[in-house]
């Protein structure tokens, strides 16, 4: 697992990757790109840690500490001593 950006927790393991391309499909910010059966991280700084790639990767080649990037939810969670910050 190799970190791809100082701005987030996304890690990619090129060894475990089979090049199926599901990460390219699910990422809403174009972080991944595919060239035949090889996946490249092309826009690592844009990762918003939604977790779609990790959840959908069948080979465990992606790790990200996912969660909502929402200050209101995180402040509320801190104030109510909840572990997980969520909306609504």
């Amino acid at each position: 697992m190799v970190g791809v950006s100082a701005l987030n927790t996304l890690k990619f393991d090129a060894e475990a990757c089979t090049g199926c391309g599901i990460c390219v499909d699910v990422c809403p910010h174009g972080v991944f790109a595919q060239n035949s059966r090889t996946i490249y991280v092309v826009h690592g700084d844009a990762c918003m840690e939604c977790g779609a790639c990790q959840v959908n990767c069948p080979f465990g080649a992606i790790q990200v500490d996912s969660g909502v990037g929402c200050a209101a939810a995180m402040i509320a969670a801190a104030l109510t001593r909840k572990q997980q910050a969520t909306c609504g």
Partner: peptide, 8 residues
């Protein structure tokens, strides 16, 4: 639609 937990 783009902020990450780490960034926030």
């Amino acid at each position: 639609t783009f902020t990450s937990r780490t960034g926030v």
